[in-house]
Design a protein around this nucleic acid. Structure first.
Length: 204
DNA sequence: AAGACAGGCAACCGCCAGTAG
DNA sequence: GCTACTGGCGGTTGCCTGTCT
């Protein structure tokens, strides 16, 4: 049986007391063990709810408040590269959570792009409806598939360094000496750099 | 002043991948 | 190899608040 919660489990907005209980417990015991955490911390919440609350609101590294123009620009660029991979996008923007970015995209940026005549899904002009399958990542596939594609590419690059465009990106010997996560991070950096270069130096 | 409406955001839900037994 | 469990993710919902009529 999965997701069978006791009838007493609480839902809805968190109270200040609950926040304090959760924060104190994690400060004392650390993160993790989310399934058993609520009971140990004296909370009537499910583990998932505790994790979400911590990750999106209580974690000290979370930066709350207005998203700057630079951050907004970065979100748009990353979304163009990654699609709806909010956790990946959030990972590139310090202090911002996937949920916050997802909400900001859905409430602000998608409308902003639409008002500029840009399809927020494909980042192409709304007038040209035919998607280009070779443009960066394949937006027609599901977001999870996109992750697989990106990951597959990045791992392929480990075994075959010649297949990666290293212009401005990581050197092949760096790739081989780094963990897969580092490789992916470097790969993403190179994609972003390429993106910015191509935007400022249009090709013939 | 009050009801209707829309926008923003916190939180929930369901699915999937990884992993331990 | 199979099963159950856990953590993580993206999509979606629904409440709260501000604005409009």
């Amino acid at each position: 049986m999965r997701n069978v919660l006791p009838a007493s489990v609480k839902k809805g907005p968190w109270t200040r007391e609950e926040d304090e209980l959760l924060s104190c417990y994690i400060a004392r015991e650390g993160e993790g063990q989310w399934q058993t955490l609520p009971k140990k911390a004296g909370l009537l919440r499910c583990g998932k709810s505790c994790r979400l609350r911590w990750m999106n609101y209580l974690c000290p590294s979370v930066k709350r408040g207005h998203i700057s123009a630079d951050e907004e620009d970065l979100i748009i660029r990353l979304h163009r590269l990654l699609g709806n991979r909010w956790s990946l996008i959030a990972g590139r923007i310090p202090g911002r959570t996937d949920n916050e970015i997802k909400n900001y995209w859905n409430t602000h940026l998608s409308k902003k792009l639409t008002s500029q005549g840009i399809d927020p899904k494909t980042h192409k002009p709304l007038s040209s409806s035919s998607p280009n399958p070779n443009h960066n990542l394949n937006h027609s596939s599901s977001s999870r598939d996109q992750t697989k594609t990106i990951s597959a590419n990045s791992h392929e690059n480990i075994s075959n360094p010649n297949s990666i465009n290293l212009n401005g990106g990581p050197r092949s010997d760096d790739i081989l000496s780094h963990s897969p996560d580092d490789v992916f991070t470097s790969f993403l950096d190179s994609l972003i750099n390429d993106e910015m270069c191509s935007e400022h130096t249009p090709t013939a």
